[in-house]
Design a protein around this nucleic acid. Structure first.
Length: 718
DNA sequence: ACCAGGCTTCTTTTT
DNA sequence: GAAGCCTGGT
């Protein structure tokens, strides 16, 4: 360890802020610190370590163990959400929650909010449910109650939104469900109301460590502060330049004001990078230097310069995929890289498609991380609905899904009647099904009882032979295989394989003991992210979003689709600060690369039925002396056949020709060219950007760097 | 209760 | 452009 790392590790008597640049060994420092604490006599179960993903948690636990060379029992390590689930389970009784609560994912949330809106008679023309959900989620991340939200918004819809928020919460409560944000918010709320219980937890932890602190939201911040109490034995590690989750409530001010928040905080900067070549690091530093809102920090490395960043101009999305796969294959030969050494990173999940096609056609094994998560697949959610209902018979969303999948001739009216019966009698959905005779007649009652029979049989199976047996029972009873073949003949087999995989996962699931197996399994599965199950050791090319790539590193990285409109996304220009966040995301991507970095863009890309493309403004922020532009011999633009294909109507034809972007229209002054200015003299263009229709150039004059409107300078010869 | 076909929404990123 | 949602017909 270097001096700075050592300082961060050994400061254990007060708050520590570790400002850790990309690749500066922060995970290493954190792991060492935990080990150090244990070696100094701190009991492992009195240490709480918060990581950003479950995978990181697992890795850290393993590394601490290897480091100490003894088993470390009882360490509290996990994501904020995971830790909160544990806390809620333990305090369920005293806080008035049921232990077998359900965790609602986005789909479940959406159907709940739609129900709430329907009750208020608001149609979705007036208020988009997704937007309402966003507002509520945001509020919960900022620890804002419906009442506070109403005051805060004070627009025409303030009352309406607050009402929906309130009702939405009631519906969750009735269903015995928490959404992701509740997992964080409820503990903070309850701790605030029960100082005695909070005291117990404060005394429980001697030291708290938080990784990726720049991406914590206000509610997480409050929780952390509460648990620290007055002792302030806390270590936070983060990098303001890598804050990329503001859209999900991450509050960068948490890290910016740590020093004023915690008295006598010791700040340690880790600025030596052990990951990337000098050139890549220089490119990264220059790019992020375009941001104004940041703490001062300058990364350096002892690693040699290495190869220039390759900037690849491509014709179309397809062309981009082809070229990149070719250059990837080429690099395997030339540098001796294997498949697992490569990552293809993109801004949006939809971009994976073209690469998938090409990789598959050329027979190169790959893995896509993200996009549709395993547990979000329809077939998995269908089966899980039954299990959720068993674990928590108040879960309305699960009830509706289970009873309608597969179709069993029970319609909306009947479902509404069951719900009403549940409400009126304060009973569970399962109880209501068993008493079907009291509100439904004849054939309908028989059908309802049939459904409840399936659940009962599964519950008995589960009690006897485990959750996987219960699951199997359900799949058989509803003849899910037949259902898949009928509904999805094109990929029924694949889907059924997923169901089998689910059963296997249940079979392998080891119940940590204190919890009921089924609800513990369901909770874990809900909090699982896609990187969690990504195995970097398998020899495959990895494809993922830039967001998912945070914290990872690869010998060779391709950042693709660095185009106008796509990265930065055009909507980043709408809101203050969003552009800088996109730039940080680019910075995160660049700093994933150890040896080779490639950045590519297409001159024209079909998106959303229309066309966009051309080099992103970010391309010009990569200094000329760190990169090499690779333009295809035959300028690709768009070939004739490609132009024809999407055209159906004459109208579109006319529009289309105008849509072809000029890939180098940002400025007549290219990076690296020389210009002269009447006052500052001759200088080299190092970057250009545009805002408000004007093009600004960053120019290196003899006297220093200046940012100047392009109309004030003229071309100069070298 | 279910289906077909038209219409709108969508792609930002995720625990 | 595709997927999902809604509507009106059966």
């Amino acid at each position: 360890m270097n001096d700075a790392q050592r300082a961060a590790v050994e400061h254990i008597d007060g708050p520590t802020l570790v400002l850790a640049g990309a690749g500066s060994g922060k995970t290493r420092a954190l792991t060492h610190k935990i080990a150090y604490l244990v070696s100094r006599g701190v009991k492992p179960w009195r240490i709480l370590a918060v990581t950003f993903t479950n995978k990181a948690a697992r890795e850290m636990a393993t590394r601490v163990q290897t480091h100490l060379n003894i088993p470390v029992e009882g360490l509290w390590i996990g994501t904020f959400h995971g830790i909160c689930v544990r806390i809620i389970r333990r305090e369920a009784e005293r806080w008035g929650f049921k232990r077998d609560f359900t965790i609602y994912d986005r789909d479940d949330q959406l159907s709940t909010i739609k129900k709430a809106m329907k009750e208020f008679g608001i149609d979705k023309e007036r208020l988009n449910p997704a937007h309402a959900l966003h507002t509520i989620g945001r509020a919960k991340n900022e620890f804002t109650s419906p009442e506070d939200l109403e005051n805060k918004l004070n627009g025409p819809d303030a009352k309406l939104k607050a009402d929906i928020y309130r009702r939405y919460n009631e519906l969750l409560k009735k269903a015995g469900a928490f959404d992701f944000d509740d997992l964080l918010m409820k503990p903070v709320e309850k701790f605030g109301r029960h100082p005695d219980i909070l005291g117990e937890w404060q005394r429980r932890f001697d030291h708290i460590l938080v990784d990726e602190y720049q991406d914590t939201n206000h509610t997480q911040y409050l929780l952390m502060k509460m648990l620290c109490g007055d002792y302030g034995h806390v270590t936070v590690v983060g990098d303001d330049d890598q804050s990329i989750y503001s859209w999900r409530g991450a509050d960068i001010t948490n890290i910016l004001r740590f020093e004023s928040d915690f008295k006598d905080a010791k700040t340690v900067r880790l600025e030596q990078n052990y990951r990337s070549t000098g050139t890549i690091l220089r490119a990264a530093n220059s790019v992020v230097a375009h941001n104004t809102n940041r703490m001062s920090k300058k990364l350096w490395t002892e690693i040699a310069d290495g190869d220039p960043v390759e900037i690849l101009e491509c014709g179309s999305e397809r062309d981009e995929a082809e070229r990149i796969v070719s250059s990837l294959k080429n690099e395997m030969k030339e540098y001796g890289f294997s498949r697992k050494d490569f990552a293809i990173l993109y801004r949006t999940n939809a971009q994976s498609r073209a690469f998938e096609d090409v990789l598959r056609r050329r027979g190169i094994p790959y893995v896509i991380v993200g996009g549709l998560r395993f547990y979000e697949r329809k077939e998995i959610k269908d089966i899980l609905a039954y299990l959720r209902l068993l674990a928590n018979p108040d879960d309305e969303v699960a009830f509706v899904r289970a009873i309608t999948t597969p179709k069993r001739k029970i319609g909306d009216r009947t479902i509404e009647r069951v719900s009403q019966f549940v409400r009126e009698n304060g009973i569970t959905f399962i109880d209501a099904l068993n008493r079907a005779g009291e509100y439904a007649s004849g054939i309908t009652a028989t059908r309802l009882k049939e459904f409840s029979g399936i659940l009962k049989a599964a519950a008995e199976k589960g009690a006897m032979s485990g959750i996987d047996a219960a699951c199997e029972e359900i799949v058989e009873a509803i003849d899910y295989k037949a259902y898949l073949e009928k509904e999805h003949p094109e990929n029924a087999d694949e889907r059924f394989d997923n169901v089998r995989e689910l059963i296997t996962a249940m079979n392998e699931y080891e119940n940590p003991g204190e919890d009921d197996g089924l609800s513990a399994f369901l909770a874990e599965v809900s909090l699982m992210s896609d990187v969690d199950s990504w195995e970097g050791e398998v020899d495959r090319v990895t494809l993922m979003t830039l967001h998912s790539a945070k914290g990872l590193e690869f010998p060779s990285v391709f950042i693709v689709g660095v185009e106008k409109g796509l990265f930065p996304l055009s909507r980043a220009f709408d809101e203050e600060g969003q552009l800088e966040e996109e730039r940080r995301l680019f910075y995160v991507g660049i700093t994933r690369a150890e040896q080779r970095l490639h950045v590519s863009y297409a001159a024209s890309r079909e998106r959303y039925g229309t066309y966009s493309g051309g080099a992103s403004m970010f391309i010009k922020e990569i200094p000329g002396d760190t990169c090499r532009l690779i333009v295809p011999e035959v300028h690709p633009r768009v070939s004739v056949t490609e132009r024809r294909k999407p055209i159906r109507r004459t109208m579109e034809f006319e529009d289309y020709s105008q849509d072809i972007p000029d890939s180098d229209d940002l400025s007549p002054f290219s990076i690296g060219s020389y210009v002269s200015h009447p006052k500052f003299g001759r200088g080299e263009v190092t970057a250009s950007s545009s805002s408000g229709g004007d093009v600004f150039l960053t120019i290196r004059f003899v006297g220093g760097m200046k940012k100047i409107k392009s109309s004030f300078v003229r071309n100069a010869q070298e």
